[in-house]
Design a protein around this nucleic acid. Structure first.
Lengths: 239, 239
DNA sequence: GCAAAAGTGTTATGAGTACACCCATGA
DNA sequence: TCATGGGTGTACTCATAACACTTTTGC
């Protein structure tokens, strides 16, 4: 029987995380299918322990879902429209609960029915290092292409979109994009990653100049792929 | 006897506002001296009604303090370190309470002792239109030059500084500076306002070009001050 | 006429864009 | 030797910075 100890957490407050990963030329976001309601998908989130910094809470929540520590994190906005977290108590859900009494206690608790103000965080992770874990209420946890985000619960589509906006705003000033890549990468890897984030193309030569002018990359050996063309250099981030 | 109805508000949540005004070449911030503790100064703030959007709450709180509606507002960050709002229960305060039993009920209430996560908003106002009002716990409400901010309660210095950082970040992209000025103003007024916000000087001619290139100002008649020099044009914001 | 402050024009500088060309690689 | 993709150099455009000059105002 799943539990959710209400006494552990601060009431009225939640955290929702927009976790960005990158693979195969596509910016992706980690989303959970919820087991207590058919076809409901949402951002990974959680609550704040009574004796815990909010940044710490976000880190804990992300560790629980990704098994990663030292994740790059930014708090970007608080979401607090008065009806944003009204619980969707439909006929469908009621039928579902008949079949799955395990979750009934949690879902129908006063805790779940209260109003939540949610703190939005976005995170950047190396998708290959993530070991996706579900929590107690999740049916699955999957990566969705940013091009193909489904309808989400509550105001999670808005949170996701605002997170993306903040990501783009911060991208070049904070040089955070490299958090999406593995330790070493080619210039083409960086460019495709940028193009997936900004949904536009960049001129190859100018892009290379701009990136190298940041002065934070070290050039390593060449990467021979067996392809019949010049082998690209590998780079890694220094400092 | 002052009251503070705890049942009205969401627990654990507060709002703190960094209200920016501009006068005499100085960027200013509205601060309150609190009556329940000698020499304690803080940002104007308040709590969120149980049935109220957070943006609405910020507007209400600002209306209570400034008598202004339609204030330019931006939510910029949530502050939630675990000990940030620990109540400073010093000997000094205890002595004070002996003399002022009126406030004892509020200050020693469980409400005031709980942990607060505070949502930071900044506001831009035409300082001449503000009718400063104190609330029940304030001894005074005054404008402080940004150059001369005293030590504030809790983490309010940090909130103020983060608000200023956000203001500077948003300034040119959102063209919000004109909210600090009256309806009409000279180019020099704008420049001095900018210089007080960024704490640096701008070249006069280039500054004028940049501002006019925004394309949001209309040139009006000249402003004759009686000074022995060329009279500057007045401008007002269009759209 | 003079000083003070405002208006405007002209040239430098630097970041970003567009175009072109050369080089390494494996079939 | 050829196609492919990677590396690099140069000229162009545009926004901002720096400098200079002219105009208006009241004494």
């Amino acid at each position: 029987m799943p539990t959710l100890d209400e006494n552990l957490y601060l009431s009225h407050l939640s955290i929702d995380c927009v976790v960005f990963g990158y693979a195969d030329g596509d910016l992706k976001v980690l989303l959970n299918k919820l087991s207590f309601f058919e076809e409901s998908i949402g951002l990974p989130g959680g609550f704040i322990h009574k004796n815990e910094d909010i940044d710490q809470a976000a880190k804990r929540i992300l560790f629980e879902r990704t098994s990663l520590e030292n994740i790059y994190l930014e708090q970007f906005k608080a979401f607090g429209k008065k009806n944003r977290s009204d619980f969707i108590f439909t006929k469908k859900l009621k039928n579902y609960l008949k079949l799955n009494s395990d979750f009934k206690a949690i879902i129908t608790s006063n805790w779940m029915k209260q109003r939540f103000i949610s703190l939005g965080y976005y995170a950047l992770v190396d998708i290959n290092k993530v070991k996706v874990k579900k929590n107690i209420l999740d049916e699955s946890a999957e990566w969705y292409s940013i091009q193909n985000i489904p309808k989400l619960i509550y105001d999670h589509n808005e949170i996701l979109f605002e997170g993306l906006k903040s990501l783009r705003n911060d991208f070049d000033t904070k040089l955070i994009g490299f958090n999406l890549l593995p330790e070493t990468f080619t210039m083409k890897d960086i460019q495709l990653m940028y193009e997936s984030v900004f949904e536009k193309t960049f001129a190859r030569n100018n892009f290379q100049k701009k990136i190298l002018d940041f002065g934070i990359l070290e050039r390593l050996e060449k990467k021979f792929t067996g392809a019949a063309n010049k082998a690209p250099y590998l780079y890694k981030r220094i400092q």
